[in-house]
């Protein structure tokens, strides 16, 4: 178990609920992943079509913590309203704060993000801001009361993996007390391993699982990847070297001659 904001979680993998071939596959993938936190969104629905009802029922059966997002918002004011609506519906003060600043890259608007985070923290929300790997922005988010910071690995849905590992590593080193979760752009289990080996506390992803040919099997792959990366980080990895060092001591081995090749 590990501490995520004010709760204890059993998994360091956080999973999105979008783009699955069906609700049944979504449920099975979430169960197979053994994740403990899933993200959800809000949208206009018609009561006549019972929009959202099936999904709502599934959410209540999955026994996961819900992390509603503010996807689609472009300014702080709208994000705050949507967060308040999410709190009423889902009965949680957790909010994944997303404020888009660019339609092409879906890059977050960091100025509006800090403004919204400041006000939401004052309104007693636990804010999980989706941001870039910019160190100063992340520090500002921490300063305004965010305990969890979620920098992207790459643009949402791109699957490109950690485009700027140097900056992500710097973030880890400069904010050692903050919970850091890589969010967005993770495409393969090896990307999740890489993030966890850097010392990130968790990985949040969606498309890499939901658009896999076999989402359930991929969910298991990410489950294991996140565990492997975390174990490696905790175990402490050897330092990289520029010279070869024989694994087997060559002294006194047969046919060994100390002649330079």
């Amino acid at each position: 178990m590990w501490q995520l904001a004010d709760r204890l979680c059993s998994s360091r993998l956080l999973l999105g609920t979008a783009h699955y071939p069906s609700l049944q596959v979504m449920r099975d993938a979430i169960t197979a992943s053994q994740c403990h936190v899933i993200t959800v969104a809000l949208a206009r629905q018609s009561p006549q079509t019972k929009g959202g009802e099936a999904f709502w029922n599934d959410l209540n059966d999955l026994n996961c913590f819900l992390l509603p997002n503010t996807a689609g918002c472009r300014n702080a004011e709208d994000a705050i309203s949507l967060a308040e609506m999410a709190r009423e519906i889902f009965q949680t003060n957790w909010i994944k704060l997303e404020i888009m600043g660019d339609d092409y890259t879906l890059q977050p608007d960091l100025f509006e993000l800090v403004k919204a985070a400041t006000l939401l923290v004052q309104k007693k929300f636990e804010v999980f801001p989706y941001c870039t790997e910019d160190l100063v922005t992340c520090q500002r988010l921490v300063d305004c009361g965010c305990r969890v910071i979620m920098p992207w690995a790459a643009p949402i849905g791109s699957g490109k993996g950690l485009l700027n590992p140097y900056a992500l590593e710097t973030l880890r080193q400069r904010l050692p007390e903050v919970t850091l979760i890589v969010d967005a752009g993770v495409g393969k289990p090896s990307h999740a391993v890489q993030a966890m080996e850097l010392g990130y506390d968790g990985v949040l992803l969606n498309t890499a699982v939901s658009l896999a040919h076999d989402p359930i099997k991929m969910a298991m792959a990410f489950r294991d990847a996140v565990q492997a990366g975390r174990l490696a980080y905790e175990a402490g990895m050897m330092l990289e070297r520029n010279v070869a060092v024989a694994s087997t001591s060559l002294i006194d081995t047969p046919f060994w001659h100390q002649e330079k090749k």
């Binding site: 999105g16 783009h19 699955y20 959800v40 206009r44 629905q45 709502w56 519906i89 969606n206």
Partner: peptide, 10 residues
Amino acid sequence: IEIISPMQGG
């Protein structure tokens, strides 16, 4: 007036 309800999201 905007009325919203849960949907799948990332």
